[in-house]
Design a protein around this nucleic acid. Structure first.
Lengths: 252, 252
DNA sequence: GTGGCTCTGTGCGCTAAGCCACTAAGTTAT
DNA sequence: ATAACTTAGTGGCTTAGCGCACAGAGCCAC
């Protein structure tokens, strides 16, 4: 990781900590690669590590027997995986799978559990984030139930874009279909329209965001609601300047 | 409230406390009537009271602009309203509305906040329940997305039945439709089938559960999953004997 | 009673999205 | 280079659920 990218790609929750607690936390963290598709935890299973994504991002997924998966939440460098540890619970509520390849800080669950005793700020931030995640769950639930596929697709593309730190990222129609809980060919149609309108372009699993503003208008309000919910409790997820910069530069 | 019903209708979370903490908690509680339809809190708004339902029960509802409401969770005497206080947060994540008339213990938010410092058990139980509620949210989300109305209807009837402590309770088709996020006439059709099969009977807003076992088979697995999730962390929500008793005696 | 209100039953046309199946276009491996 | 695989595009048919609209039926108030 070059010096210049360090201040940009960090974890916002960690950033909110005081110098003291941050140092304490990072002492116990390893930088690890998140590989696309890796299962990080399974519902009701104990897990060993928590993750603070830096450039990678993670999907929270619910599965019902005989059905496609359904994504309930997305975790990038604005959040963390395993926040229910703030409740003293060491089993996962949902399946978590790496959706965007990249890096993350990883910490042993026991280490963080220990740290929580000594770090009131850390505890507070985890609690705030847990609340935000709950809001995200219920928003996504209603969104999946009421909003049509095209709106939802635009929303997920934006959410992924926010967390990918690049205008291009890996996402096949099949994967998207699984996240949205719909057929693959339904995604093909909806994505085809967005491509025709030049909001996005894609080919064989690489999606490029061409017109973020237009995409925002094509998405349901749930996107903005999610942002607002986060901001209310935890501030600007990524400084706007940094975000704009990234959106403009894309992949070099 | 007669002496004989007191041990039956209590709050399970409160029951789990040690004698000492329970006394401490109940010192600050008032018994209040929950009136059907009362709004107890609004999303993002501060609220003043928390509720431990005894015989009444409460719906957690999400609304999207231009759409019907959608119920995400149900809170009876196995749970509580306002559990996010365990995160130190004093605004509501969702709208809460009384779905089943009855009684509840009510406590001032500041009082409970204070108690949480001195009552480690209380804190622990609230945390466990919050986790259960999260699981309920994501289960309901996927259920609403994938499962057909008839299954979902059976599920909600069962969940309401569990919390109503009676075989008969007030529920119009319109209200059910709002909870399930569908048209009223859709509910009429689905409920009509259940009535034809003699699983339930209803008239003008009063629903009677006739055959609980059959209803269970008509419901999706989400019902059982919810029960199991609760049981894993907090034990049997209502002792089975009590439940059977109640199911048999119904309203005198 | 009579009128008004609430709750339930029913029908009709429409649409988003389901299932299934096949083609075509890139990519990777041998 | 050819085969095998992955990804994307397309079409036909089915269906759950929507919106709308109206009719009947029980209940309450005056």
């Amino acid at each position: 990781m070059s010096v210049s990218t360090v201040p940009l790609i960090t974890n916002h929750l960690v950033n909110l900590l005081s110098e003291k607690e941050r140092v304490l936390l990072l002492q116990h963290c390893d930088v690890v690669e998140l590989e696309f598709g890796t299962l990080l935890c399974e519902p009701q299973q104990r897990y060993r590590y928590l993750y603070f994504p830096l450039s990678g991002f993670i999907s929270l997924v619910t599965k019902l027997a005989g059905h496609k998966p359904l994504e309930m939440g997305l975790i990038g460098n604005e959040g963390m995986l395993g926040v229910t540890l703030a409740l003293g619970i060491t089993t996962a509520p949902m399946q978590a799978v790496v959706q965007g390849k990249g890096t993350a800080w990883r910490i042993d669950i026991a280490a963080l559990q220990q740290l929580l005793h000594d770090c009131p700020q850390l505890q507070h931030i985890l609690q705030q984030y847990l609340f935000v995640l709950m809001a995200q769950l219920s928003q996504s639930a209603a969104c999946a139930h009421f909003h049509e596929l095209d709106y939802r697709l635009a929303r997920w593309l934006l959410m992924s874009h926010d967390r990918a730190h690049s205008n291009d990222f890996h996402l096949t129609h099949q994967f998207l279909a699984d996240m949205l809980g719909v057929r693959r060919s339904g995604v093909t149609v909806a994505a085809g329209i967005l491509q025709q309108k030049q909001y996005i372009s894609y080919s064989r699993g690489m999606i490029s965001i061409l017109d973020r503003t237009a995409l925002k208008h094509a998405a349901c309000e749930c996107y903005q609601v999610g942002i607002d919910n986060y901001r209310r409790l935890l501030g600007e997820p990524i400084p706007d300047t940094a975000k704009r910069l990234l959106a403009e530069q894309g992949t070099p």
